[in-house]
Design a protein around this nucleic acid. Structure first.
Length: 296
DNA sequence: GCCCAGGTGAAGC
DNA sequence: GCTTCACATGGG
């Protein structure tokens, strides 16, 4: 299985590195509504992963990355970007149907990220009935208010880590609402408390079956099937998790069941059966396609 | 003003 | 069971 090549993934401390990886569309990946902390500055994307400020840039078949403090081991970034995933192998498992073929052709190089689970849970808790741009703004306010400052270059905007669960568990609901979280503030606090108290161990979810992990997340108030599947897909590595939001629901109905009445139950059965071992990737292609390319 | 946004939970038939 | 509605907030 071909993997990305990387110069000096573990070597002398460096401020930058390059991953050479075929079929990686950085812009589509960072801007496809799976992560909410990336900002396009010129031709580069700036964000924070854990406590690291990062600037990444597409250079043809390679991704160039810069950080603010020298790094020996770049494994954390390779893991986040999932550069070792061979996209061709993933796409080869997709069913050969017209809608998916169109979506894959339109969104060439779209990938899934592997995000920190707590950040993923918290940000998707804040996502309900919000547009992606607004989710970004809420998350930015939250990080500025409650996240640790992280080192960044002088020309960059001040950067903050995503607030820990322990920190948010100690924040009053009114202060969360001041970040424009609205009715989601209560849910965010409850999740922070559950994680901080270790009543919910997010790191252990990946050891469970998909159904068990999903059930554990759905114990939290404000976490239903859709948000749970986002966390499992984007933060825990469950490649068959298949979040169905308004866009994906629309994609399934319009593209697979045109002019037919389909119950949510039927849709679920279809999804479980149809998309294969990387159904979550297929979901992301349909989502991005509907948002950026499809004209009804 | 009206409708919608990567939803969920509670209440109503 | 399935449908309707409230929940905050901002953009088109």
């Amino acid at each position: 299985m071909p993997v990305a090549t990387c110069c000096e993934r573990a070597a002398r401390p460096r401020y930058d590195t390059t991953f050479c990886v075929p079929d990686y569309n950085l812009a589509a990946t960072l801007d496809s509504g799976q992560a909410f902390r990336w900002r396009l500055v010129g031709d580069a994307w700036e964000g924070v992963i854990g406590h690291q400020w990062v600037r990444v840039r597409q250079m043809g078949e390679c991704i160039h990355a810069e950080v603010a403090a020298p790094v020996c081991d770049w494994g954390w970034l390779a893991d986040y970007l999932q550069v070792d995933v061979c996209l061709a192998d993933v796409l080869a498992t997709f069913p050969n149907d017209a809608p998916l073929r169109r979506a894959v052709a339109a969104c060439h190089g779209l990938r899934l990220l592997r995000q920190p689970a707590w950040e993923c849970l918290a940000t998707f808790l804040l996502s309900s009935t919000k547009q992606i741009g607004q989710i970004r703004q809420i998350v930015a306010r939250l990080c500025r208010a409650f996240g640790e400052p992280v080192a960044c270059p002088p020309e960059a905007a001040p950067a903050f880590a995503f607030p820990t669960a322990a920190r948010l568990a100690g924040v009053g609901e009114a202060d969360l609402r001041a970040c424009k979280t609205g009715f989601r503030a209560r849910y965010l606090r409850a999740a922070a408390e559950a994680v901080a108290s270790e009543q919910l161990d997010l790191e252990r979810l990946s050891l469970l079956s998909l159904a068990e992990a999903r059930a554990a997340l759905m114990q939290l108030p404000g976490v239903g099937r859709k948000i749970a599947d986002c966390v499992l897909l984007f933060g825990c590595g469950f490649s068959t998790a298949f979040p169905v939001d308004v866009w994906v629901g629309r994609a399934l109905r319009e593209l697979y069941f045109p002019r037919r009445r389909v119950s949510p139950r039927q849709l679920e059965a279809f999804v479980t059966d149809h998309f294969g071992p990387f159904a979550g990737y297929a979901q992301q292609y349909l989502f991005h396609y509907m948002r950026c390319h499809h004209v009804p």
